[in-house]
Design a binder for these strands. Structure first.
Lengths: 195, 195
DNA sequence: CTCTATTTTCAGGATTGTCTGAAAATTGGA
DNA sequence: TCCAATTTTCAGACAATCCTGAAAATAGAG
């Protein structure tokens, strides 16, 4: 590996983390190199930086492009293609979550819905369906929250996250102020919520 | 595999998903079986259900115990150990997130902090540190939010998630009502937030 | 259109991770 | 204490994944 020590340490750790999250170690390293690079890099520069084969870099870049995680760049008078990462790290995380949701969560929700529509043939299946229903509701709730929050501008998102659970205090205050009927004991059902 | 069709479908999908998240497919299947089982199961019942070797089940259960995801149960007059999953699916998710945070996020934060303390030896390293600082702040923000929200009772958590970004509207209202100095343009810094 | 720089594909070797049966260790009861 | 049921360990077989070099494909310049 041919990188400044600081970058090398980061790249190695990031590759390791990637491999724990179902992402090929090399792909993680390629992204790490691009992430800390001052300017877009071409494939051969990545080969040079990581000391891996050219074909491996090609496959890694292709994978990262499938994930929409790269910004392709062209340099005047140069035939090679250069790649960088979005400057805004929030944009990177949004893309990452979107893609994982699309590939893993959505199919899981579909599967759960299909299984919940079947009529149980035994007590065992009836009980399993009850469990699956809990799981479906939980995932539904979380993806609904994400879909909603994802629309916020970064500034607002940061504000919301900084608040943490203090938000609940504000909600209580709101409820007191407006004395909504059915106040704090409200049940949360799918996409319903008082605004 | 020796399970009702509905359970089998779930177990297969869950195992597949697990393997995409850095969890051994078999371990995922074992958890899935326990999750939809009406009562705790012993190792041999899992062998029977999944059609895998006894030793494989033993290793899988050990792994799941390391993740604190199992509830060991003892049956009177039976020497075998039985395992179930927590009834509350929220408890399961909390544990899962806690463990992943402990194993992956916390070490990453440590690494980032260490690299940020080094004095850069070149422009490349200086730029890399700026990127790493962004990443550190983002992870810090998200883990801070999680640590905070994780303390809520499930009921409250559901309420918060159901609200989604509508919370921001309430915040705006609050800001207007009390006309805080510096109102909506506030910067979010680490753990600081107005309540 | 041709030429050449560059990228992509892919078969097979290298590596890593998973699974198993046999043997060892453990545990509770007698 | 010993015994038998049960669990755990682990070397090696097996499988999946990754990585590479060589060859094919692509794309821009002339």
């Amino acid at each position: 590996m041919n990188l400044p020590p600081l970058c090398e340490a980061f790249v190695l750790h990031f590759g390791e983390m990637g491999s724990r999250w179902g992402i090929n170690r090399t792909v993680g390293q390629i992204y790490a190199v691009l992430f800390v690079a001052e300017k877009p890099l071409c494939a051969d520069e990545i080969v040079e930086a990581l000391g891996i084969s050219r074909s491996n870099v090609s496959m890694g870049l292709k994978e990262l492009q499938n994930w929409n995680l790269l910004k392709p760049r062209h340099v005047q008078g140069d035939r090679r293609e250069f790649f960088g990462t979005p400057d805004d790290i929030y944009a990177i995380v949004r893309t990452l979550v979107d893609e994982r949701k699309k590939r893993e969560i959505d199919p899981t929700l579909t599967m759960l819905r299909e299984l919940l529509m079947q009529s149980p043939g035994s007590d065992a299946e009836r009980y399993a369906q009850a469990r699956l229903k809990d799981m479906h509701e939980l995932i539904d709730l979380m993806t609904g929250w994400y879909a909603d929050v994802q629309k916020l501008e970064t500034e607002r998102l940061i504000q919301l996250l900084s608040m943490g659970s203090k938000v609940v205090k504000v909600l209580e205050m709101k409820d007191r102020l407006f004395a909504l009927p059915g106040g704090k004991g409200r049940r949360a059902t799918s996409s319903q919520a008082g605004g």
